[in-house]
Write a protein that binds this DNA or RNA. Sequence first.
DNA 1: CACCCGGAGTCTGTATGCAATAGAAGAGGA
DNA 2: TCCTCTTCTATTGCATACAGACTCCGGGTG
Lengths: 269, 269
Amino acid sequence: MAAHDEAAKLPNGAEEVSAEGTSQTVRAQLSLRELLLSGEFPPGTRMSELPLVERLGVSRTPLRLALATLEHEGLLENLEGGGYAVREFTEDDIHDAIELRGVLEGTALRFAAERGATGEQLAEMRELSARMDEAVHKKDVDSFWDYVELNSRFHALFLEAAQSPVLERALERIVSLPFASPSAFVLAQAELPESWEILVIANDHHKGLIEAIEGREAARAESLAREHARVARRNLEIVMENREVLERLPGASLIKLPSSGGEERPDGE
Amino acid sequence: MAAHDEAAKLPNGAEEVSAEGTSQTVRAQLSLRELLLSGEFPPGTRMSELPLVERLGVSRTPLRLALATLEHEGLLENLEGGGYAVREFTEDDIHDAIELRGVLEGTALRFAAERGATGEQLAEMRELSARMDEAVHKKDVDSFWDYVELNSRFHALFLEAAQSPVLERALERIVSLPFASPSAFVLAQAELPESWEILVIANDHHKGLIEAIEGREAARAESLAREHARVARRNLEIVMENREVLERLPGASLIKLPSSGGEERPDGE
DNA sequence: CACCCGGAGTCTGTATGCAATAGAAGAGGA
DNA sequence: TCCTCTTCTATTGCATACAGACTCCGGGTG
């Protein structure tokens, strides 16, 4: 999670992923995810092992393990003859992933409302919400980064209040898909003033969610969390119409564009 | 899926998993899953590689890949010093997994209702439901096996009608957990007459689900699917009180029993 | 001219050797 | 008797070598 944030900040890195005490496997995993999300390989590209070995500087054994992990995460797909290829995501896939995140977060918030949150958790939620309010009203780029951090902490907090490791694992896997993360589009929102008011709405959702948990209103918590996730869908639609912003989002190249006309790739590697 | 059915029929095997054209990796994976679900290793046991190598007859490389896959599936957990251990499931974990399956299947049926199912799909659903009715009313053991097969086909069918590969993947992962499968307890139902009427109720759910999809009643489809999954929870509670039936279910030994008193394992391998 | 066959190159799957590390056991001292 | 330090062993992580399969290209033949 923290690693994902760091990776998102790097502009084009992936040459070396600050390897110190980490194993070769996780190093390969992080570097590979970075490369994939940076758009280095177009969808459908076969991820041959030997070129990656010399590019990432690790041996085949940890590389293979990293490939398998990324396949489980959904960024790669298994080829029938063996090996892996870069997966392509349709806009429908992303819609469903966002909807699914809403469903799972809705369940998490329903659990939190049914099972009750501690006073400390509620207090921290309120504090985070207030600080997100501040960040939204400041309207400068740095406070958007603050917002991302506060937002992910907020989401982690109600996941904690749900008290369900099983749900936690399921949500982790959905969020690992590109564009399904709660803060996937906040970067874009920092640059697109037309979507600024969406943050105001999102923060209103946050307040409603806190109320619902506090008042043990499970149905309200669930449906509001679903609606909350759907702001990401609105952001997606806005971003999809602003190609120059879209291109800068990690993983943009994995999206199958509706009518790009580029069925035959002109520059095949 | 078919492999899982075959594996479930073997009594204690796992010596060899009918290896013909399959790779060593999937062979190790199937054998290992079989061993784990058979209760060969108590929860917390470290899955050392070398003993498994000589037991499964594969080399360390495919074995390691199989271990990683099972960790992604949730049957194993990563030890901090490296290596894997058998995971233990609390009753709460199983409750949440069942509830989560209900949530995801509810979403699948909502999608099916919103997006519409084809006439062939509805016809096949109706036929499957009718045949499940027959199987339930026959009340012999063989027809319970028929029921399992029809039921899994039924579930696959509405997943197909949902038209969402993302949802499909998420559901596959939840179902891979022991006891979260739609037909996890049907075997037990074949032996416990007290839970026979649950099958009648479940089949009534099936009919309601078909109606809801046909009439595009998305909310009804979703809530009914959730309720449908909760019959598994009732079955779990019945089975948990019949230890001799529980012991025969695959994966039973991975459940942490509430007050078994056996904190210290007497025979620690 | 077209089709088939053969060979070379490349890729993945698998096995095994090596090194580093963590844990346990034993010995020595307080 | 207990604590600590040292040493040894067992286990994992990593690298590399080997084998089988698949593909692609070229040449030969019908």
